[in-house]
Simulated assay, not measured.
Amino acid sequence: MENIIEAINLKKVYGEQTALNIDSLNIKNGEIFGLAGNNGAGKTTLFSCLLDLIRPTTGEISIKDKPVNKNSEWKNITGSYLDENFLIDFLTPMEYLKFVAGSHDVNPNDMQQLLEPFQGFMGEELMNSKKYIRDLSTGNKVRVGITGAMFWSPELLVLDEPFAHLDPSSQIKLKNLLKEYNQKTNAAILVSSHDLRHVTDLCSRIVLLHEGLINKDIKTSTNTLQELEEYFSVG
């Protein structure tokens, strides 16, 4: 499989603090990639550099061999949800999803079919809600944001702590949804999570960050959860 993401000599420094320091990181097409680490490990910083929300101090991160800070083609194939700032809070859920569809040249006549796989995850009540997004619970905002990132079938999906704020039923639905999406589209999926069980259940590969550095790069196996629990019990 070819690489969809390549990071080389990637460093982000704030004053005297180095938030990220990665010599090399490659992520392949079709890979479900997990990012784990304690608070401040650099997970969100890495995703923010990938999405060109912040610029690295040195180094480069590319999607499909093109640096993200020098072109915008990657936006046409990348769906992402990091936090509620990605939403437009004065729209209803469906108005927001229609806005996303228009941004990616989705035919309005295809909306119902594209959203069908997400009915169980979002729920009919939220799908048809007349509330503005700003008035929704945090969990419902997460549902809307993740659905907006996925339903138009991007080749690359980036989700920061997607299981946070979701109830157990929604967490299981999301995990199954992501697995099915990967099998159907062969999209690369990047997920960060504090929940070690979710990340080991979902991901084929897990990278552990500590103080901006890659400490471990693990191919998931039956022993991975125990390995991660032992790692974090010492940290």
Rank of each mutant, 00 (worst) to 15 (best):
K175W: 08
T58S: 14
N21G: 10
N3C: 08
E230W: 05
L174V: 00
H210R: 11
N215A: 12
K130A: 08
N71T: 03
T224F: 05
A188Y: 11
S103M: 11
H165N: 14
I189Q: 15
N38R: 12
I189C: 11
P162S: 04
N128T: 07
V142C: 13
F163T: 07
K98D: 01
I214E: 15
I172M: 10
L156C: 05
I218D: 06
K216E: 12
N26R: 13
N109D: 14
T200E: 05
F121Y: 05
L225A: 00
M122D: 03
L174Q: 03
I61M: 11
E180T: 08
D195T: 01
S170I: 01
C203P: 09
P56H: 08
F121R: 04
M150A: 00
F121W: 04
H104L: 02
T147F: 15
K12F: 09
G15H: 10
I77E: 14
L178I: 02
I77N: 06
P168D: 01
E31V: 02
N38W: 08
C203Y: 04
T147K: 09
V158E: 11
G37C: 07
I146K: 08
N39Q: 12
N182G: 08
N26W: 08
G59S: 10
P56M: 11
E16M: 14
N38T: 08
N71M: 02
S137G: 02
T185V: 14
M111V: 00
G148D: 13
E73T: 04
T44F: 11
L91Q: 00
T220S: 02
I189K: 13
I22R: 10
A36L: 09
K179T: 05
L178P: 06
T147W: 12
D83G: 06
I133H: 09
S221L: 02
F86Y: 14
L166S: 01
V144E: 06
E31N: 07
I214V: 10
L166E: 04
G102P: 06
E2F: 12
S192C: 11
L51E: 07
N76Y: 07
F90M: 03
E31M: 07
T58Y: 10
T222C: 11
T44P: 12
T58H: 14
Q183H: 15
V144I: 05
L156E: 07
T57N: 13
T222D: 14
Q171D: 02
S72W: 12
H210C: 09
L174P: 03
A149T: 02
P162N: 06
